[in-house]
């Protein structure tokens, strides 16, 4: 297989033609992407898109049925210790050890990574301070709030001094304060040179944190690129939401869509949404019409718009 000769640093994760099957069902079919050193990379998609399966294969927790994954230039396969030694994983559930104290939970993690008792103690102390958990060091994990548990799970994933940190929905169920703190910590890690691989259902989170992202659905990749570029490409820069509008009015207004760079328009329940760029031209034009312009709300297009555009509005269960 040929690889382009790279002059920059090698990719931290390189996925090529990845396939995963469960019986007859192909959960992932022919997915390829890469994660560069030091970036925050997002893997997005609705439930059942194949995200978790892909993550499990990257973390050497599931067998690969086709294609290849290289993590830090090592081939991924179940139980590859050379990779596992260099990554930290924050899984979706708070799988802290309920029989151990806060400090014990992360100290023992360091020991699992082969650290000496002294080394693990020192690193655990650093991380407890950094995650603002020091005062809870002796507490049982069941006595922690949701936000604290999450911080502890992240601190634990950092015990092995990972070069790649995998965050699988790190802020699900957290209150806004706790989310902000997690975001701040992720940015700090990035500035320290840690590569971050993130999945999330919160599009604002992905938009804020990710340098680059991939949107998956039905086991394949739909879009790839920096959030701004993906948004501009798929839906345009902004959105006009018109409410309290009749269908006649809509037909009349829609005649002028060609006068701006409209990517698409659609009914979202009672709201007619118009996506595109330079929509002020459209607004100006509409204001010259005889009929009064209905109430409208103008906003920046977001990753959420992209996500819904690509994966549809149907519920996934």
């Amino acid at each position: 297989m040929l690889h382009q000769t790279a002059t920059t640093a090698p990719d931290v994760v390189r996925v090529e033609g990845l396939v995963k099957r469960y019986g007859d069902f192909e959960a992932v079919h022919g997915v390829s992407f890469f994660v560069s050193e030091g970036e925050c990379f997002g893997l997005l998609g609705p439930n059942g898109a194949g995200k978790s399966t892909t993550i499990r294969m990257i973390c050497c927790l599931a067998a690969i049925d086709g294609g290849t994954i290289h993590v830090l230039e090592l081939p991924a396969f179940p139980g590859n210790q050379a990779i596992k030694q260099q990554i930290g994983v924050v899984s979706q559930d708070d799988n802290l050890d309920p029989d151990l104290t806060v400090r014990e939970n992360i100290e023992i993690q360091g020991r699992f990574y082969g650290q000496s008792a002294g080394e693990a103690r020192e690193r655990a102390q650093e991380l407890l301070v950094w995650m603002q958990l020091e005062s809870k060091a002796k507490a049982q994990v069941r006595d922690l709030s949701g936000g604290m548990r999450r911080r502890l799970v992240i601190a634990r994933a950092l015990m092995g001094k990972p070069r790649l940190l995998v965050l699988d929905e790190p802020t699900t169920g957290l209150d806004p304060q706790a989310r902000q703190l997690v975001w701040a910590k992720v940015r700090e890690l990035k500035s320290q040179g840690v590569t971050v691989f993130l999945t999330t259902h919160y599009m604002d989170e992905a938009e804020r944190l990710c340098d680059r992202l991939v949107i998956m659905d039905h086991g394949g990749i739909l879009e790839e690129g920096p959030p701004d570029e993906v948004i501009a490409r798929v839906v345009g820069e902004e959105c006009l939401e018109l409410s309290g509008i009749s269908e006649d009015q809509q037909v009349q207004l829609a005649r002028h869509l060609g006068e701006a760079e409209v990517t698409f328009s659609e009914w979202q329940g009672e709201i007619w949404a118009v996506f595109g760029s330079q929509l002020d031209r459209l607004l100006q034009r509409w204001q010259t019409l005889e009929s009064a312009l209905p109430r409208f709300y103008r906003r920046r297009a977001s990753l959420e718009d992209v996500f819904l555009r690509l994966t549809g509005r149907d519920l996934r269960e």
Partner: peptide, 15 residues
Amino acid sequence: VNGVYESMVTTPLSA
């Protein structure tokens, strides 16, 4: 229930 083993295998530990 607690995912203790699940967490352990994400570290260098094997089954």
